[in-house]
Amino acid sequence: MKTVLQTDKIGKNFGGLRALDAVDLNIQEGEIVALIGPNGAGKTTLFNCITGMHEPTDGKVNIIPPGKGKTCVNGFKPNIITELGLARTFQNIRLFSKMTVLENVMVGCHCRNKNTFLEAIIKGPRFKREEKQTLAHSLDLLETFGLVDFAQQMAENLPYADQRRLEIARALATDPFLLLLDEPAAGMNPNETNALDQLILKIRTEKKISILLIEHDMKLVMRISDRIFVMNQGKNIADGSPQEIRNNETVIHAYLGEE
């Protein structure tokens, strides 16, 4: 097993508030890790620090793209980190709502293409080739996610669950080796959540992508994750297999409070 992400005692302060405190998180190749914890535990902040939306106050975020050396990405812009192979979705869906479903996914392919606006104007060979690949690849992804029938619809017109799925498809279009999902099942009904299970597992096996997800739906978490990473008040309080976490005193305590 090879490590793909490794945070080294990262911390984040917002004014006087310590939102993250010395968090060490490792993710191995092909692993599905769930990040759980009560509200305000710092899960999304951790996501933001990893993906470059926030810069950690202390500690290091290291990523190890397959076949490449370890890179410390502190202070990198989010787009550079995405280019290196980390992709994410957002807790409050952030689709490009006035663009079509297909275009949303095509935007995801942006960073894997190189053609410039001049080539687009003269329709140069690289432009033609890359556009063709982008289109085919995007349609492929939509097919995988069962969204191909809606390809030409405005993204904002999709039902809620489909919007969540589209966000995942769009993130995958950036061709990541690690996918970060922020509450992918939020607002879905049980059937949709089950379908999401299968999808996440399929992404892992077919595309050989590691997945880190924040999720409140414990059934989903227990079913799909290889490992669970529990946070409370900005700290990591437990890290282990679903079985271990289920029986962990500290975790039960954090979730249920004093009893």
Binding site: L95, F96, E103, V107, N113, A120
Partner: peptide, 20 residues
């Protein structure tokens, strides 16, 4: 490609940047 990037920028700058 650049046209789609413009529109993504218009729709949501944060998500646009997250798309690389």
């Amino acid at each position: 490609r650049v046209g789609r990037a413009w529109m993504a920028l218009r729709e949501d700058e944060v998500a646009c940047q997250a798309m690389g």
